[in-house]
């Protein structure tokens, strides 16, 4: 197991280095002029040139690359052109909201995926109808789904808020985790917790829709597969009810692929947050990326890409290890 962890860790570092390289390549091909944007419209040519030299855009590429790697190693992602802040500081500010959203959406997707997967595997006409309905639903662009959800649950029913992380009639605590739900529980303010959860429902649902479908599909197919296996047949022949067979025997052994699929869906979700956070004015990394795109704020875009990429790589690293731990046969391969 130790050797495996080591090997996977080595691979993890390689992937992260690859990510860093890709981001660097992107940085060097930007067609815009960030130095000019920073000093403003009325600045002299000299001021622009000075800024360029300061940012290191004048150096030859290999030198830029070494500088870039050195900065990365120190956790320095340069300053955002828009916020004038260190990108690392900005990311620290925006990341908790995205973490909260992505995590909730993930849990929601897993729950929905499990329920739907079982329903689909149950078969019958209902399952097929639901499948078509689901694919159709997941085929609507997320921005439209989001806005329609707001129309229904905010404008018509008036049960959920439309945007933001919390109502502006609340005092938002300054920590310790910056995860609103956790903080509000720690601070003993249940009304804030409730409000934060209410704000979370619609964006999390929008984000969870597509991954839930993917998980459900994977689960249902592996359920069908497993249910043909001998041991399940044996269980059936013992006279156990179909439900017991499905839940007690088949589900347990079908969860592997679904788990893997869930891990993969994190990547999809991290891309989805850009759209969802914009619709729901969710103050997270997605919103940060969206606003940075509009400003061609490349340090910010690449910084956020690095963060999300790293998060994704890490999630899958742990999924890997968890599976190896759970299933000894993987270790031997």
């Amino acid at each position: 197991m130790g050797a495996l962890v080591l090997r996977r860790f080595g691979a993890l570092l390689a992937v992260l280095f690859g990510l860093a390289c890709i981001v660097f390549v992107l940085q060097t091909v930007i067609p815009s002029d960030p130095a000019r944007a920073m000093v403003g419209a009325n600045a002299s040519q000299e001021a622009v040139a000075a800024k360029k030299a300061e940012l290191g855009y004048d150096d030859p590429l290999p030198a830029q690359f070494t500088q870039y790697l050195q900065r990365l190693a120190q956790g320095d992602l340069q300053s955002s052109l828009r916020t004038r802040n260190e990108v690392t500081a900005d990311l620290r500010e925006f990341a908790p909201a995205t973490f909260e959203l992505a995590f909730s959406a993930f849990v929601l997707a897993a729950a929905m995926g499990l329920g739907l997967g079982l329903l689909l595997a149950g078969g019958g006409r209902a399952g097929r109808v639901i499948r078509v309905f689901l694919i159709g639903g997941a085929s609507i662009p997320a921005f439209l789904t989001g806005l329609l959800l707001i129309v229904v649950f905010y404008s018509w029913l008036g049960v959920l808020p439309a945007s933001g992380r919390v109502g502006d009639n609340f005092i938002v605590p300054d920590g310790p985790t910056n995860l609103l739900i956790v903080d509000s529980i720690l601070n003993g303010t249940p009304d804030l917790t409730l409000d934060a959860i209410k704000h979370l429902i619609l964006p999390a649902l929008t984000l969870a829709l597509l991954p839930a479908l993917a998980i459900a599909r994977t689960l249902s197919t592996s359920l069908e597969q497993v249910s043909r296996e001998d041991y399940v047949r044996t269980a059936r022949s013992k006279g156990l009810t179909e439900r017991t067979v499905l839940l007690k025997h088949a589900l347990r052994n079908s969860s592997g692929p679904a788990l893997t699929m869930s891990g993969l869906q994190v990547g999809l979700m991290l891309g989805g947050v850009v759209v969802v956070e914009r619709i729901f004015a969710w103050p997270g990394i997605g919103l940060y990326i969206d606003q940075s795109i509009a400003y061609s704020d490349f340090p910010a875009i690449t910084g956020a890409t690095l963060l999300l990429g790293t998060a994704y790589v890490l999630v899958n690293f742990f999924v890997d290890l968890a599976q190896a731990w759970a299933d000894p046969r993987i270790r031997t391969v």
């Binding site: 806005l147 707001i150 439309a162 619709i279």
Partner: peptide
């Protein structure tokens, strides 16, 4: 209170409400 609401559709729905 100046709230960042990047989508005009969301802004509109909130204004109407």
């Amino acid at each position: 209170i100046l709230s960042i609401t990047p989508d005009m559709g969301t802004q509109r729905l909130k204004l109407e409400k």
